[in-house]
Design a protein around this nucleic acid. Structure first.
Lengths: 249, 249
DNA sequence: ATCGATCGTGATCCATTTGTGAGGTTTACG
DNA sequence: CGTAAACCTCACAAATGGATCACGATCGAT
């Protein structure tokens, strides 16, 4: 009946115990049934205290963690679980979708995150991916250090600090501007339509005008380009969208 | 008027088959025509039994599902389709706007929902977004560096970068020129009439002169052919149309 | 609650692309 | 070899798409 998931041999034979931390019972049960369907053992915790309790009894491979909880801050919870030592994957559920949340979430030790409302297939796909990554890690991967800095031409982004320098001079960007630039810088040379950018930078199920992207590109250019009319970094691709210059790789 | 479809290269060329489950013929046909307009194949089912029948024959990427059906409960239908395993997107239509909140929608396994009465633009926007999300999930979620490059003879197209090199030298093409060339290059040796090209590259309800294709072929040749009068790549098939040379495979 | 920064949107102007028309040229065929 | 159909070339005007500016709405901080 259920297909697609059982295919991944090794993972399937692994024991998969999942802790669901979520205060809305409806959602918790929804997630639970679907996880059971794909062969996971599941426990549910409705608040932070219960969560840490169950967690300390151990044995979980994955925690699905809602950020909004009645008693505890999800981020603290996340950090606590991390510091417990065992390697568990943490999938964060959050209402907001800015890159900032993503960064903060990842910094606190989440492995992936999903914004509400999410669809079940999407959730399952992410979980699947997480299990796969854990598998890969166990068979010998290096957990990298911190401080991701991206250099492209005269541009330098510090991802965690969310700071940008251009030829050594610091530049102030707003949140969206930074998110946008970060996305470009991570995919140099690739062309993105405005819709794709709305999807990736603004978030799925965002319904706004493509025109909005223009404005942000415009403002971004006025800050990072010496001559915004003849940009070096963020280039226009006529009739399609924008790309980050591949000369700057 | 309509744009943004060709931009997403693969999506446009993907087969998009949609099952419309709706008992009111007027609405069903309305939806159908508009889906056809944006290049979807469509089938209509007027009740639950017919729906499952068609669905099991498979091949749908999307189901537009009315909750109110004469014979079956839409909810059950939705769950049945989900448990069939294949990944389809489900867009739910419902009359009640108060009752169906996020949680209920999720519980049913829908990826998105829309309350009646809905506007056509809104419907189309949601459907497009769904297709985009599915695409993104299938091609490995995050920022994967896949980089699809097509080589044919001395020609080399980078699909994501929308860049073209001929014998190593980069060439600048406009959006339409690139789309046209891409379509040829993906179907080498096959002959296309001008009308077929208008359909596939320009869009489905495009009404223009076939002559337009000439001009574009002309401009394209002047950019990629060493001797446009004796083309190597895009060849004329007299009385029929054009094809991409099969020598270059 | 107030203030300021930031973001989304609308209007306007400007650039490129693209569709189209009018010839000229090639091809097929009697 | 002549003719008609099909195709190519070229130039130009219009439509499309992009840049810019300015104005409210919104969100966060004070």
């Amino acid at each position: 009946m259920e297909s697609g998931l059982l295919v991944e041999g090794k993972i399937d034979l692994m024991r998969r115990k999942v802790l669901i931390v979520e205060d809305e019972p409806d959602i918790a049960h929804l997630v639970q049934t679907h996880l059971n369907d794909i062969g996971c053992e599941t426990d549910i915790a409705g608040n932070g205290a219960a969560a840490m309790n169950l967690f300390n009894k151990g044995g979980y491979q994955l925690v699905v963690l809602d950020l909004m909880l009645p008693d505890t801050d999800g981020l603290t919870l996340c950090r606590n679980m991390r510091s417990a030592g065992d390697y568990v994957a943490i999938l964060m559920l959050t209402a907001k979708s800015t890159e900032l949340d993503r960064v903060v979430g990842l910094e606190m030790g989440a492995d992936d995150y999903l914004t509400k409302p999410f669809s079940i297939p999407e959730l399952l796909a992410r979980i699947k991916a997480l299990f796969r990554r854990m598998e890969a890690l166990q068979s010998g991967g290096a957990t990298s250090g911190k401080q991701e800095i991206i250099e492209r031409g005269g541009l330098s982004l510090d991802v965690d600090r969310r700071s940008v320098k251009i030829d050594g001079k610091p530049v102030d960007l707003t949140a969206k501007e930074f998110d946008l630039l970060l996305y470009f810088v991570r995919n140099p040379g690739r062309v993105f339509s405005r819709i794709q950018l709305l999807d990736k930078v603004w978030g799925y199920n965002h319904d706004g005008y493509e025109h909005t992207v223009n404005s942000h590109i415009n403002r971004l250019r006025s800050k990072i380009e010496a001559d915004p009319a003849a940009p070096r970094y963020v280039l226009t691709v006529w009739g399609v969208g924008y790309k980050f210059s591949e000369e700057q790789e």
